[in-house]
Design a protein around this nucleic acid. Structure first.
Lengths: 208, 208
DNA sequence: CCTACCGATCGGTAGG
DNA sequence: CCTACCGATCGGTAGG
């Protein structure tokens, strides 16, 4: 329980950001009104302007503080395994589980691209950049040799693996003619593993 | 020049759809008003409702008629080469060139996911499905053996290749620390090729 | 295809 | 005099 008006203020601000995030990913930016944010937070519209000067300022703060990398980075770092292949499979499992829990994981990015023409992309990337280095240690001391692929390409293509699985999965869902189950995911991951690993037979052995 | 009021009506309808498409991908659905569409088409708001009963009906028609697969499918089919690797590289080149011409190529999909929670996904997929088969012939009679990967996975991961290159590229653009040039694309494509092809040394030979 | 409107709601701000 | 917030309302615009 807040003990001062100062603490109360910080709490209200946090609640506004939580509500705004939820509504933005549910409906998009323009379709979310300041009144919606206020009502669902339990404050008036005027009160919001005590914490943020414009609606876009709320967006900027939501984008930077609720961006998926906040959840994804720790998740990736918790991936375990003795070989590179095992680590990648473990990371893929964790990420897909998170995607099922939060099917709107990438919505902040899509909104930023469409409704803001990615104008805050530089700010966002500056925030992420320092933490990208942490990920490089994921494969340290693991068995299995990587092809000589630059780290940025490795990371971008790994993210892409999930984006494509997720986005194309939305459109084949409930169709039946295409499966979107765990088998599909494994096939995606295998394709990625064959793509990044030196050929030494370890993958085939593991599969058998 | 239209010779009858019937033809004039069809032309107006087409112009409305063209304008709506342009504004939707520029700003998103909610941020685009019926008045915007009317003004930029050169008709009043009331006139639009002569052709479409709701704003969402315009969206549905735009989504189905302007969807990127209309441009992408013919593009992929024009890819040439004597080996699977050459065809894939050719297709990748063509697709990236198209992406540079139309940087908003995927925006319709993003809007459908965020602002409509993908409610028209089934309609869209039904429209695309019959044409997916045409693509399967792309690799017919080409040298280079594919791993046993189901065709849907092949296609989904190929689309994913570009989505990840495109989306992550937006956020690393103009940063300098990460390159987003032709070299990056080739590295993405190589990763994909290693992922789908049986190992027979042909790729290394080609690279050398 | 237009002018002229409707009930409601938009982002943002007034004084207290 | 501060903060956090209120009820009411601003000029304009939303879909219809």
């Amino acid at each position: 329980m807040p003990r001062s008006s100062r603490e109360k203020s910080v709490e209200t601000r946090t609640q506004i950001l939580d509500t705004a995030y939820r509504l933005f990913v549910e409906r998009g930016y323009s379709a979310t009104s300041m009144r919606d944010i206020g009502q669902q937070t339990g404050v008036t519209v005027g009160a919001i302007y005590n914490h943020f000067s414009t609606k876009e300022e709320i967006w900027k703060e939501v984008l930077l503080t609720k961006h998926p990398y906040h959840d994804i980075f720790p998740l990736l770092q918790s991936a375990e395994g003795e070989t590179v292949a095992e680590v990648v499979r473990s990371a893929a499992q964790l990420l897909i589980r998170e995607l099922h829990r939060r099917t709107d994981l990438f919505n902040l990015l899509f909104i930023e691209i469409v409704e803001f023409r990615a104008k805050h992309a530089t700010d966002l990337f500056q925030a992420i950049l320092p933490r990208l280095g942490e990920l490089q240690s994921m494969f340290q001391g693991k068995r299995g040799r990587l092809r000589s692929i630059p780290a940025p390409i490795l990371m971008r293509s790994f993210i892409g693996l999930f984006m494509s699985y997720y986005i194309t999965g939305i459109f084949v869902k409930e169709i039946g003619v295409m499966s979107n189950d765990e088998t599909s995911l494994n096939q995606f991951v295998d394709l990625y593993l064959y793509g990044i690993l030196e050929e030494d037979g370890s993958l085939e052995g593991e599969q058998a």
